[in-house]
């Protein structure tokens, strides 16, 4: 696939963006066009982009169809990150399709799809990602637990879930989004150095001053373990930039 990214002015990449509507509250303009406009406005070069409805679909293939179609006019800046549900038939095709489309990663949602991160579905997904050189994005939470809709009952990922995931295959590289400081520390220091090197964390759920969580994690866990992430269209993308500025 043609590399349409070479001419971009900066290398700030949002690893935690999505598009599409959410069943539990209205997200204003959750479209690729709005995302591109916000990236432009805020000086963010590109975004890895998932598809919100696919979190709740059983058969995610239709969601991936929609994601790829939506992003096609914007591929210079928006890199699709399709969903893969290894507990549902046909998931291998979605993984192959992600590779063929030049996607950097795939997303999966164990709590929503109903599989164990230490179980056979996860093992197969991890092996597939490793074989195809696709990173796997796992999301700890979609929304703040204090504001979830009463029908929104999927569990948040625990440290045990993430430790099991990183241990299940030596070739699996994980990007974990929306993790809080305690979870980052628990998993990072509950992993071998080799396992920890295969983990990256986005900054969307880490706070700045006066607690200075992000700055502290830079020192203890290492700056190289963190990637930029906004959690668009749920959250103001400005927040990722302000915490980055205040952590320097």
């Amino acid at each position: 696939m043609e590399d349409r990214r070479a001419a971009l002015p900066t290398e700030l990449v949002d690893h935690n963006a999505l598009v599409g509507p959410y069943p539990f509250r209205r997200l204003p303009d959750p479209t690729p066009e709005r995302l591109v406009a916000d990236l432009e406005r805020l000086g963010i070069a590109r975004a890895w982009v998932g598809h919100v409805p696919s979190i709740y679909y059983r058969d995610v293939a239709a969601g991936n169809d929609e994601l790829l179609r939506w992003l096609e006019p914007h591929r210079a800046r928006l890199l699709p990150v399709p969903a893969v549900n290894p507990a549902y038939p046909g998931w291998e095709r979605e993984l192959e399709r992600a590779r063929a489309e030049g996607c950097p990663a795939v997303r999966s949602y164990p709590a929503h799809y109903g599989f164990d991160t230490g179980g056979p579905e996860m093992r197969a997904l991890a092996a597939g990602c490793a074989d195809l050189h696709l990173q796997l994005v796992l999301t700890v939470r979609i929304e703040d637990g204090r504001q979830r809709h009463r029908l929104d009952v999927a569990a948040e990922l625990l440290g045990a879930d993430l430790r099991a995931a990183v241990r299940i295959h030596r070739g699996l590289h994980l990007v974990v989004t929306n993790a809080d400081r305690g979870l980052v520390e628990e998993v990072h220091f509950g992993a071998t150095p080799g396992e920890a090197e295969r983990l990256q964390w986005d900054i969307a759920w880490l706070w700045g001053p006066p607690d200075d969580q992000l700055a502290a994690l830079y020192r203890t866990v290492g700056r190289q373990r963190f990637v930029f992430g906004t959690h668009f269209p749920f959250r103001l993308p400005e927040a990722a930039l302000t915490k980055l500025a205040l952590a320097e």
Binding site: W207, L236, E238, L246
Partner: peptide, 16 residues
């Protein structure tokens, strides 16, 4: 409150 980065973000968003 306890997260000054998010306060600043809302200020930036208001300005936009």
């Amino acid at each position: 409150d306890l997260t000054m980065d998010t306060g600043w973000a809302k200020l930036r968003a208001l300005a936009a």
